[in-house]
Structures are given as structure tokens and as C-alpha cells.
């Protein structure tokens, strides 16, 4: 449902910088269903890629083989992302706060981590330079926290226009897609509020699954359930992916 919801929010010809996992699944579902000319960029340097199966890693051969072009890493970050050519950055994280700041680095203190996570990777500069950012993350009081253990990527910082005042080129996170519904930032305070929910989810449940006192928009819309077409396309994509990832490799020695 998260994947389908996120896919619906993408548009044709958007230049989209995509992370692995749910963002990649949603971006490719959108490409297959409704946005054939969406430009997908992965940080491995593959530009305009059209993978037939979802990549397991950010640099699977499938991404290079189906790309318009493949560029070196310093170039993808400098000439393409930093230059402002990306319309939409699509990120996941381990924790998010009410202003859309993200933690993908560590749970607990940095020097004595309770859980050391993989780290920021490309996200800090995607979050800074993409014209806007969507965050896709499962909701629980452990992931939607009042205060991050570590800021890996900036959202609206402390809110109330701080991000814009400090001169960030991109507009920052404009949507958080969760397994309860959709949050959007309040235009004045920058605080994320619940604006839509899935049919089977109550507002009270969404509020309970959030670690900060989640406010709701003027009206909380109901997100239409996935259509048969959406479900079939997603299932086929996952089935193709599973089959491809199970193929054994033959070494030339």
C-alpha cells in the first residue's frame, strides 16, 4: 500500500533520485504504470535507467545495462545533484522527526551506539539539493520520534522556516508516506501533519503509532485502495525480482 501510494505521487518526466528498497520499488512501479518517461537516477551513476527487475544493490548490472548513460560518482553528485537537476529525491530512514529530519546513522549515542546503522550515504546531499523530497518509512513510535538520535539528513531543521532561512537550495521534504497514510508539512510551522489515511486505518491508530503528538490536517482524506492493475503490476515486479535474484552466477574460471 505504501509503495502504491508513493507510486501514485510521482509524475511523468520527473527527474527522480532514488534510494534502494521501497523508494526504488515505488519509482519503478510508477514508471511501469503511468510515468513511462520518468528519469530514474541511482547514486551509482546510472541516469535514466529502466530496470526490468528491482535491483538488490544500488549498482546492480541491470541498472547500468538499461540506463541512458552511466557517469562516475563525483560527477553524479556534483554535476547532476548539486547542480539542481533533480526534481525529486526519494529517501528512506530509520528515524524521522516532526520536521522531516532523518536519521540513518545510529540508534543511541554515536560513540557508544546501541545499534550502528549503515550511515548517510548519498542522503545528506539528496535532502539538500533535490527540489523536493519524499520520505517513505513505516510508522511506529520507535521510528517517528520526538528527537532524533542523530541528524543524518536535514528536513526543515527546527521548523518555522529555518531551512529556507539558512539558504538550502531544495524545498525539503514535502511528503512522508507511511503504512498508516500520508503526512504533509504545515506551510507555516513546517511540522508534518496527517492529511490522508488508508481505508483500514483510523486516525487514532495513526496518532498512536507516532512518537510525537501528531496533528491532523483540516480534513483527513481516505486513500483509495490499490486497484487490480496496481497490485498485479507490483506483484509481477516482485516476482520477476525474486526470480532474478535467485539465479546462480557462473564464474569464468
Amino acid at each position: 500500500m505504501m509503495t502504491v501510494t508513493a507510486a501514485r505521487m510521482l509524475w511523468d518526466r520527473a527527474v527522480c533520485f532514488v534510494g534502494i528498497g521501497l523508494p526504488s520499488a515505488a519509482a519503478n512501479l510508477a514508471r511501469l504504470l503511468k510515468a513511462p518517461d520518468i528519469v530514474l537516477i541511482y547514486e551509482s551513476g546510472t541516469i535514466g535507467t529502466r530496470p526490468n527487475v528491482l535491483p538488490l544493490s544500488i549498482g546492480d548490472g541491470e541498472l547500468a545495462d538499461t540506463a541512458t548513460c552511466v557517469v562516475p560518482l563525483p560527477e553524479i553528485f556534483a554535476y547532476w545533484l548539486q547542480a539542481g537537476r533533480v526534481d525529486l529525491g526519494f529517501l528512506g530512514a530509520a528515524q524521522v522527526d516532526r520536521f522531516g529530519n532523518l536519521n540513518s546513522t545510529v540508534i543511541g549515542p554515536y560513540d557508544r551506539p546501541q545499534t550502528r546503522l549503515p550511515g548517510a550515504g548519498g542522503a545528506p546531499e539528496i535532502a539538500l539539493h533535490a527540489k523536493q523530497v519524499y520520505v517513505i518509512i513505516k510508522q511506529s513510535p520507535r521510528t517517528f520520534v520526538p528527537s532524533l538520535d542523530f541528524v543524518s539528513s536535514a528536513g526543515f531543521l527546527g521548523g518555522n522556516g529555518e531551512r529556507a532561512r539558512r539558504g538550502a537550495p531544495g524545498r525539503g521534504p514535502q511528503a512522508i508516506i507511511t503504512d498508516y497514510g500520508l503526512m504533509r508539512p504545515d506551510p507555516t510551522t513546517d511540522e508534518f501533519v496527517l492529511v490522508a489515511r488508508y481505508e483500514h486505518v483510523t486516525v487514532a491508530a495513526a496518532v498512536a503509532a507516532c512518537g510525537w503528538p501528531l496533528r491532523t490536517g483540516a480534513a483527513v482524506e481516505v486513500i483509495a485502495p490499490p486497484t487490480l492493475e496496481e497490485l498485479e503490476a507490483l506483484r509481477e515486479l516482485h516476482a520477476r525480482t525474486r526470480a532474478a535474484h535467485a539465479v546462480r552466477v557462473k564464474l569464468p574460471i
Binding site: F77, Q82, T105
Partner: peptide, 10 residues
């Protein structure tokens, strides 16, 4: 140099 690390704890 880069325009980067904006607002992060890194």
C-alpha cells in the same frame, strides 16, 4: 569542496 552536510550531525 561541496555544498553539503547541510544541517547534519556528521
Amino acid at each position: 569542496l561541496l555544498r553539503g552536510y547541510f544541517g547534519t550531525d556528521l
